[in-house]
């Protein structure tokens, strides 16, 4: 597959499955990176919904669990690169938290790939595009979440 085009029209076309994806973006880097993707008119699949938080460390485990409970097929947490965190070191904590959450969702029968952490800087519009396309493809391959009758 190509790296920056990602034939994205394929995503979501299979079996009428429309993945539900929640993306948490930190205000300073990833949300800005997502904006830059827009300014650069980089195209990507439309199935994700962004929720802005001030810092990726704000993403409470409860948010992730609630989203899965309500039928999310995939959750992506995007924060500043480790050294760039606007709040100095917030994202180091995020990394540890996501690792723990992955273990937890596995016990609930979820594939760990359904939860992902990415570092996306304010200058990485293309990385946002790539991440969203690849993540959507991953979720497409995994199909609906267990709660929606998948896996």
């Amino acid at each position: 597959m190509s790296s920056d085009a990602h034939n994205h029209q394929k995503a979501g076309a299979d079996h009428g499955f429309e993945p539900k994806i929640i993306v948490f973006c930190c205000n300073w880097c990833s949300y800005a990176g997502a904006d830059l993707a827009g300014v650069s008119r980089l195209q990507m699949p439309p199935h994700f919904r962004v929720i802005r938080v001030m810092c990726s460390a704000r993403v409470d485990p409860e948010f992730v669990l609630r989203a899965f409970e309500r039928g999310a097929d995939g959750i992506l947490v995007a924060g500043c690169h480790p050294a760039d965190c606007h709040y100095i070191g917030g994202n180091y904590r995020t990394r540890r938290r996501i690792a723990l959450l992955k273990m937890l969702i596995q016990q609930f029968g979820y594939d760990t790939d359904r939860l992902q952490l990415e570092w996306i800087s304010a200058g990485e519009g293309e990385k946002f595009q790539k991440t969203m396309t690849e993540f959507t493809n991953t979720i497409n391959e995994l199909g609906p979440s267990p709660i929606r009758g998948g896996e």
Binding site: S2, S3, D4, A5, H6, N7, H8
Partner: peptide
Amino acid sequence: SLIAMEHPEGFTPTYKTIEIG
């Protein structure tokens, strides 16, 4: 967004036209 770079193998990247679906 009319053409995209493929994952370069070796040192020569290739490009493919993006089909507007």
